[in-house]
Every structure is written in C-alpha cells, then in structure tokens.
C-alpha cells in the first residue's frame, strides 16, 4: 500500500500540473492513524497530505454530487476509488448526476480495508499500521505485531466483496484484483432471516428500528440517494412523520430501502455509517436477491444503462404466485 500511496500522490500531482483537475477527493490522516478521513485537495502543494492505506476506506463517491455542483463548469474532479466507490461513481453516472468527462478516476485494486473497531478488539488498542497479505492480515501496534485471519479484521462489507477493482478508471494504482478477499455468500444473512416466522421477523425489525436515531446518515452517504428533495422530507404530502414511533420507523426504512431497490450497488456505506448498528444491508440485500431471482439479473448490484424497476418484460414472473393466501 505504501507504494500505492506514492503512486497516488504522483498521479494527483500530475493531474494538477496538467491543470485538468480542480479538486482531488481522497484521504488524509485523521485524528487517529487508523481512521483516515476524506480530504479535498485543491492545489498541487497539498497533494502530499493525501494518504492511502489499509484503513482509508470511508465511502467517497457521494461527495461528487456536491463537488460537481460547486465546481467550475469545465473543471474536472479527481477521485481515488476502490471497487465499491467505483460502483458508487457508476451509479451517479447512470443517474446522470455527473458526467464521465468531468471525472478523473484513480482506481485502486483493493485487497480489503481493515475495520479499526475489530482491530482494536483483537489488539487491545487501535493498531498504528496494518498490511493485508494474501492469506492474512498483519496488525502493528505500538508494542507488538499480530497476524490474524482476514475474516476477523476486515470490514464486514469487504468480506462479501465481489468487485475489488473499479470497472471504470483513468489510471489504476497497482494491479487489477479480480477476486474479493474472502467472498462470503452475499445473501447468507437474508436467507437466515427469511427462514424464521413472520412474527419473529417483525419483532427483529422492531428491535432494530427502535434503535434508529433518524440521523439520516444512511441516506446522506448513499450514492443512489441523489434526489434534490428527498421524499422523506416532503411536507405535502408528508410521507414520513417526524415522530419516531415504531410505525413511522417502518415507513422510513421501507421507503429508504425500496427507493434504492434495483439501484443499490451494495457498497455497504449506509450500514457502515449507522451509529447504532441497524443492519441496513439486510434490507438492501433482500431486494437485490429478489431482483436477481425474479428478473434474472446475474449481478443485480452492478449498475447498468437500464434498471430493473425502470423496465419490464412481457414474460416477467409474478413474484407473489405460490405464496400463502395468493391464488
């Protein structure tokens, strides 16, 4: 990764030197080493502030929406993108929120990102450095070195990743990586939940949603949520009451998930930012799973020109047939 960081700085510097980017979105050192934060580099000199390491994984794609709005008309925006952010960028492109010409994408073949919380649990303190190797992850604390399995320390979303390298880029750091670090079955959680009774499932969601603070972080970080006025903030008609009763929480989470149905790129950013651990991906993945099953989309999370809910075919199945109560 150290090598990649050097390359990234070089790429960014060249981009500024050529004068074809106005701002470069990447990561910089945060308050803690293991928690790098997004940075918006606006001149060549500040390029040296950029970092790229095993911890820099906060989702960046949504920032493009705001930066594109504020940028000069013909100026272009640089962004560093792991596979998941690459899909987020594609999402914004297909939704026509930004144009491809406007972007300078520096892709990263991503070996997986270390979750600082998980790492802290394992080491007893937040490690100062980490290296994701072929089979394992080496964590470096102030006093020792620890070798652990990838499953134990990579972010949950990385364990299910199928797309470590962005599909579109202008420059690529390192090599293309074809396979995700672990590749657990994406729909394991959904299948487990489907297997329990309706009442148990309802209780499960009541418990999850009751924790929800309605901070809207999940919506604000989502690259598929690009409406100028969100329907959840519409006052006439007011679809979502501001009361946080259990009933309204269902309306909120149903609407949020359903509005990105067929467009979710499975980047996992929503679940990652949730301060109270609502398993939002269990909602998104259920919709992805059904899109895949019903409309024969082999990889329903990959963005494309047309979206499953924006089109139809004459011989579509009726998803409800064969269910209880339905003739």
């Amino acid at each position: 990764m150290r090598q990649l960081q050097k390359q990234l700085r070089q790429e960014a510097e060249d981009a500024f030197a050529d004068g074809h980017v106005e701002v470069f979105i990447g990561y910089q050192e945060g308050f803690e080493r293991a928690r790098p934060v997004p940075v918006f580099v606006r001149d060549r000199e500040s390029v040296q502030e950029m970092v790229l390491n095993e911890f820099s994984g906060v989702s960046l794609s949504k920032y493009l929406l705001r930066e594109a709005e504020r940028a000069q008309e013909d100026a272009s925006i640089g962004i560093v993108a792991r596979g998941c952010d690459g899909l987020g960028i594609e999402r914004l492109l297909y939704d026509q929120c930004i144009s491809r010409e406007q972007l300078y994408i520096v892709g990263v073949g991503c070996p997986g990102v270390v979750d600082p919380e998980k790492a802290a649990q394992l080491c007893g303190e937040i490690p100062v450095a980490a290296e994701v190797e072929k089979q394992q992850v080496v964590l470096q604390t102030s006093s020792e070195e620890l070798t652990v399995a990838k499953e134990e320390v990579l972010r949950d979303k990385c364990l299910k990743c199928d797309d470590p390298t962005p599909r579109i880029y202008d420059a690529l750091l390192g090599e293309e990586i074809q396979r995700g670090p672990v590749r657990q079955n994406r729909f394991d959680g959904v299948e487990q939940l489907e297997a329990v009774s309706d009442d148990e499932r309802y209780e499960f969601w009541v418990r999850q949603f009751d924790r929800c603070l309605r901070c809207f972080a999940c919506r604000n970080v989502c690259p598929a949520c690009s409406c100028v006025t969100c329907s959840l903030e519409e006052e006439e008609p007011q679809w979502l009451k501001r009361s946080t009763s259990s009933s309204e929480q269902f309306m909120f989470h149903f609407t949020r998930a359903y509005h990105v149905a067929g467009r979710c790129v499975s980047c996992g950013a929503c679940e990652e930012v949730c301060p109270v651990g609502v398993p939002l991906m269990l909602l998104n993945e259920k919709l992805l799973k059904d899109v895949g099953e019903l409309f024969e989309e082999p990889s329903p999370h990959l963005p494309s020109e047309t979206e499953p809910l924006g089109e139809f075919s004459y011989d579509d199945p009726e998803g409800w047939r064969g269910e209880a109560g339905q003739s």
């Binding site: 499932r201 998803g319 269910e323």
Partner: peptide
Amino acid sequence: RRRFSLAKRFIQYMGIEPE
C-alpha cells in the same frame, strides 16, 4: 407486476403475513 413482485416479498420480509 415488477414493482409489486419485489414489494410483496419485501413487505413480508418486514414481518407482515403474506395473506
């Protein structure tokens, strides 16, 4: 048909009985 093929399953997934 498309929309409710998804929504029907999704509402049940949230715990409402299919009937």
